[in-house]
Structures are given as C-alpha cells and as structure tokens.
Design a protein around this nucleic acid. Sequence first.
DNA 1: TTAGGGTTACAG
DNA 2: CTGTAACCCTAA
Length: 292
Amino acid sequence: MGAPKQKWTAEEEAALKAGVVKHGTGKWRNILSDPEFSSILRSRSNVDLKDKWRNINATAIWGSRQKAKLALKRNQLATKHYDNPMALTTVPPREEVVDVKPLAVSSGTPRVTGPKKLISRLDNILLEAITSLKEPGGSDRASIAVCIEEKYATPPNLKKLLATKLKLLVANGTLIKVNHKYRIAPRSTISEARRSPLLPLEGRQKDSSKAEKKSINFLTKTQVDAELSKMRSMTAEEAAAAAAQAVAEAEVAIAEAEKAAREAEAAEAEAEAAKIFAKAAEKALKSRMQDT
DNA sequence: TTAGGGTTACAG
DNA sequence: CTGTAACCCTAA
C-alpha cells in the first residue's frame, strides 16, 4: 500500500547493465546472486530484472514490444499501411557517433550540453548479441551483425556503427578481440578496468617496479598490441585508434559516473571533461589527418 | 528460472 | 487520451 510503483533508480539500472555485461543476458538470478549487485538489487526480483532489461531495450530500439502492439493497434484502427516500415531505427539522438571515417569537418556538432542520459544502447545490444551467441571462442563481426539484424531492425549503417562500437569496446577493455573474434572480457567491471589495469601475471615475473607502462592505459597485452604496432606505419590509422580510445575512455568515465552518480557528482563532471577531451582529441586528430 | 504476453499505474 | 514503465501471470 505504500508503494504503488517502485521506479528504477539510476544505480539499479547501472547495476543491471553491469550485471548483464558481466554475466550476460538472462542469468538474472546469477546477477542477483552477485554480492555487489544484490546490494543494490536486493529489492528487485529476477523477473523485475528481466522486465527492466526488456523495457530498456524496448525503449532503446523503438520497437520490440511496443512496435508490435502499436502495429497491431494501428492495423486494426487504420488500414493505412506504411510503405516504409522501418528506415531509420537505432541511432539514438544523443549517441556519440565515433565516426572517424567521414572527413567532413564536424562543425555541426555543438558542444556537449549535458546529456544525463547516455550509455549507448547499442552497446547493450551488442553485448547482448555476443552473449546470446554463446560462442566459446567468441564471435566475429558477421555473426554479431546477423544476430542483431535478426533481433532488431537493421539500419543501413549498422555495419559501420557496429565496427566502430566493437573497436571501441575492445579499446576500453569490455571486449577482447582474439584474431577475428570478439568475446566478453573475462574479469573486469568496466569501471574497474579503468582503475586497475588488470595484470594477467600468471607466473612470477612481476615487474611491479617497472612503471614504464604507466600512462598507456589499461589495454591488455593481447594481439591488439600487435595490430596497433602494425598500425604505427599508418599515421591515419593510429590517429583514428587514438581518437577511438579517447572516446572509449570518455564513455567508460561516463559509465562510471552514472554508476556512482549518487555518491559522487564530481565523477560526472570528470566524465564530462573526459568526453570533451575525447571530442577535442578526435577533432584535432581528424584535422591533422586531412591537414598535414 | 526464464521468456513472453498481458494488465495496471503513472506521466505527458 | 496516449504512451511509457512497473507489475503480474503463465508456459516452456
């Protein structure tokens, strides 16, 4: 009687997303069993998690459930059928489009005003697709694309966005790219990946005193390094990678901010700063690319 | 236990 | 009045 509707808070939503990223779609019970998440989600049930996740994705992609319902309703109400069922689906308005390809000067991109709601939904879908594929060795871009296309409407630039996002997620440590397959990072909460650069260190050989690798980030020593080395030959590619990395860092910071927005508002400011910095870096690199 | 369908409560 | 989000119920 005291709670007609218990609306979800940002913390709960963030926890849910983190749980999905960590464990995968479904496994609500597993997510709920997680001590960290259960602390926040202990008031929620697995069904609630599922429903919330459904709602999030439904609202994100313009149409999972609502579209079907709406379509049905419209079909009954009006016989007018749309010739263009779905042209532009995804691409949320506030998406930060890390497009590095277009050489157009981004003059049409105004300053970041203060997007409170972010965290690209595409990331969720992407991770969801990878987890749903359940490929042990990971999935390649084609499989992921197909999975997403089957589940949602397929925008024309999906492939490009997917490639960009994939790269981005690999850069920030959420995904691990081995050869040509992508898989979820084994052990790392995104926020944690930023704080502590996960060190494999299987055997002894712990050169902790070696602070040589300090700045360059949390990137694990995967084959990505090799590709990056290869990229060094190409200035443009390197610049693009750097820009993508900066944006990735910004997104991570934003995610962290949303997760702990309640505890520290400064984090959000930091995220904003990081985002602005990323944007600036991207812009600079881009102009440098075409200027040189 | 989870996925999906359906219903109710709240906001615009 | 319509759309959205939480809630509830049921089948797999």
